[in-house]
Simulated scan of single mutants.
Amino acid sequence: MSVSKLSCNFCSTKLEGEFATCKFCQLPDDQREFIEVFIKCRGNIKDVEKELGISYPTVRNRLDGVIEFLGYRVEKNDPGEDRKQEILAALEKGEITPGEAAEQLRRSGK
């Protein structure tokens, strides 16, 4: 899809032609909303987690999706690292005890 008409709401001037849009304008709504929150949180993943109520791996996956949509290559992380971050986030939120976190980290290291 391309932009073919621009209009001024103030003076009613109209321009017709072929107009390019930026990469961010082409993002799907959910990715654009994610990026707005990400920027508002100054890229702090913990703040994005809190604001959106999602886990660290979900934030990373959404960010990777945006990066790929914009045409850049994403280096995939070790899946074990995402699991560790998930466990630490649950510990920080008080969802699990330190002992449970230690046990889960031991099991995820295998």
Rank of each mutant, 00 (worst) to 15 (best):
D64R: 04
K50V: 00
K50C: 02
D47H: 09
R42V: 11
G99E: 15
N77D: 09
F10W: 11
G109Q: 13
L27N: 02
E75H: 09
A102S: 14
T58L: 00
S7E: 15
C22G: 15
S108H: 04
A89Q: 15
R73C: 07
E81A: 08
P98Q: 11
E49V: 02
K5I: 01
E68I: 07
G80Y: 08
E18I: 02
D30I: 02
K5P: 06
R107S: 13
E81K: 15
N9W: 06
I45V: 13
I96W: 03
I54K: 05
F69K: 06
Q26E: 15
P57M: 02
A90W: 01
L52Y: 01
N61I: 07
N9Q: 13
A102T: 11
F24K: 13
F34Y: 07
N44E: 14
K14G: 07
S12H: 10
N9G: 15
K84D: 03
K110H: 14
S4R: 12
K46G: 12
E16I: 00
C11A: 04
K84P: 05
L91V: 08
D78M: 02
F38R: 01
G65L: 07
G80K: 10
F38S: 03
L91Q: 10
K93H: 08
G17I: 03
E86V: 04
P28K: 01
N44C: 09
S7K: 15
M1S: 15
L91N: 10
L27E: 01
C22I: 03
E86C: 00
E18N: 14
E92W: 01
K14V: 12
V59N: 07
G65D: 08
N61R: 15
C11M: 04
K93Q: 13
C25N: 05
I39Q: 11
A90D: 11
D78T: 05
N44W: 07
K23F: 06
Q26G: 09
S55I: 00
V66T: 04
K14M: 08
I39L: 13
V66S: 07
C11Q: 06
G109H: 07
P57T: 15
G43N: 05
V74S: 09
Y72F: 14
G109M: 09
E103C: 08
I67V: 14
E75Q: 11
K84H: 09
G17F: 01
M1K: 10
T58G: 00
F38V: 01
A89E: 14
S4E: 09
K5M: 09
T58D: 12
I54E: 06
L91W: 05
G99F: 14
K93L: 13
K93S: 10
A90T: 03
I67L: 12
F34K: 06
G94Y: 02
F10L: 06
P98K: 12
G109T: 06
S108K: 03
T21W: 09
F10P: 02
K40R: 12
E18L: 10
Y72Q: 05
Q104C: 08
F19K: 03
E16C: 09
V3G: 05
R60T: 14
P28S: 03
C8T: 06
P57R: 04
C41I: 03
N9V: 00
E81N: 12
A90R: 14
F19A: 03
M1N: 11
L27W: 00
P98T: 12
Q104T: 03
R60D: 03
D64N: 14
S108I: 07
L105A: 13
E95A: 13
E49D: 10
F24N: 11
Q26R: 15
